[in-house]
Computed example of a mutant assay.
Amino acid sequence: MTRGNWLRSFREPMDASVRLVCFPHAGGAASAYFKLAQQLPPQIHVLSVQYPGREDRWAEPRAARLSSLAEAVAEELDRHPGPYALFGHSMGAVVAYETARRIEAGGGGARLGELFVSAHLPPSDLHGARTAVRLGEPELRRRLSLLGGTGHAVLSDPDLAELYLPILKADYAALNAYTWVPGDRLRTPLTVLAGAADPLVRPAQTYGWRDLTDGPFDQHVFPGGHFYLHEALPAVARLLSTRLTALSSGTGRQTGAPS
């Protein structure tokens, strides 16, 4: 099932009362959230964002700016009233955050209930804390080897690597070009997820996300590295299921409440 050109669904919703919109990591595609969708109960409809230039959008130009991704997804969500929650992993955390900002600023049809950000520094800290990723193939291969995950596994197949590396390079170029613009804090509740052994983002570095929302904030650390989602998937699914079930019943954390 396809919603517009941006959202993919892996199963038909059965009386779904809340939607979880998931944003992939650099080099990732909508299918990265297939297993998560299977772990969540049917009343939670998982919609995965399909960035251009991969999978069924292979022929489209890849995005040069993360802001253009956020603008397009926010526009799409405004046509499908919520409640919604957003979940973004790694680069997807930044795109999800920027989408949340646009939803709140736009005042359209989308009703945002919670933002989940995973395995990424707060965007407000990037300028001083992140060194731009070099985009040559040797550097990208070394980075994938460090981080693990499916991208690293793909490199063992030369044909797949030839397809995958240009996608990854384009995503990192967009991430390197991203600059956080100060503005209003979110009103949406914000939850940070992190891997205890992430070699790229230490859990303590993610706590600064609390300064980007006036809503409730908390942090959850799971065993594993940058792609802890693979090994900790059942625990992550339990957390999301609890939060989203509460959101659908109207008993979720209140937007704009003190943190």
Score class of each variant (00 low, 15 high):
28 G>Q: 13
185 R>H: 07
188 T>E: 07
37 A>D: 15
148 G>P: 14
22 C>I: 15
247 L>F: 05
149 G>H: 08
256 G>K: 15
110 A>G: 05
111 R>G: 00
57 R>Y: 09
123 P>M: 12
219 Q>L: 01
108 G>H: 11
93 A>D: 08
242 T>D: 15
53 G>L: 14
118 S>V: 09
255 T>A: 12
77 L>G: 01
154 V>F: 03
117 V>K: 00
243 R>L: 08
177 A>H: 07
161 A>T: 09
179 T>Y: 01
11 R>E: 15
29 A>D: 13
79 R>D: 06
246 A>E: 12
166 P>K: 04
80 H>Q: 02
11 R>V: 15
15 D>A: 12
253 R>F: 09
137 E>K: 15
5 N>D: 12
243 R>E: 10
147 L>T: 02
184 D>K: 11
221 V>D: 07
147 L>S: 01
258 P>A: 08
254 Q>N: 06
249 S>K: 06
77 L>V: 09
228 Y>L: 12
7 L>W: 05
170 A>Q: 08
66 L>D: 01
82 G>C: 13
32 A>W: 14
225 G>V: 10
222 F>Y: 14
113 G>K: 13
150 T>K: 12
7 L>F: 03
38 Q>G: 08
78 D>I: 09
216 P>K: 11
200 L>T: 10
171 D>P: 12
148 G>H: 02
17 S>W: 08
21 V>Y: 06
215 G>T: 13
141 R>Y: 10
17 S>I: 04
59 A>Q: 12
107 G>L: 12
197 A>H: 15
139 E>T: 07
72 A>Y: 01
14 M>W: 11
123 P>Y: 10
164 Y>L: 04
79 R>I: 01
3 R>H: 03
133 V>N: 04
15 D>F: 05
96 A>G: 09
84 Y>T: 00
6 W>C: 02
123 P>T: 11
109 G>V: 05
150 T>F: 09
196 A>D: 10
34 F>I: 06
140 L>Q: 14
40 L>N: 00
8 R>H: 11
28 G>K: 12
3 R>D: 07
167 I>D: 06
148 G>S: 09
219 Q>R: 15
122 P>G: 02
113 G>C: 13
187 R>D: 04
19 R>P: 05
198 D>G: 10
148 G>F: 07
136 G>D: 15
242 T>E: 14
69 L>D: 00
3 R>N: 02
75 E>I: 01
40 L>P: 00
146 L>H: 00
223 P>F: 06
196 A>C: 02
182 P>F: 13
251 T>P: 08
121 L>T: 05
87 F>K: 10
63 A>M: 10
198 D>C: 08
162 E>W: 01
118 S>E: 00
227 F>Y: 04
67 S>N: 04
227 F>K: 00
82 G>H: 00
230 H>R: 11
62 R>K: 13
51 Y>H: 05
104 E>T: 03
17 S>G: 10
63 A>T: 12
141 R>W: 15
74 A>D: 05
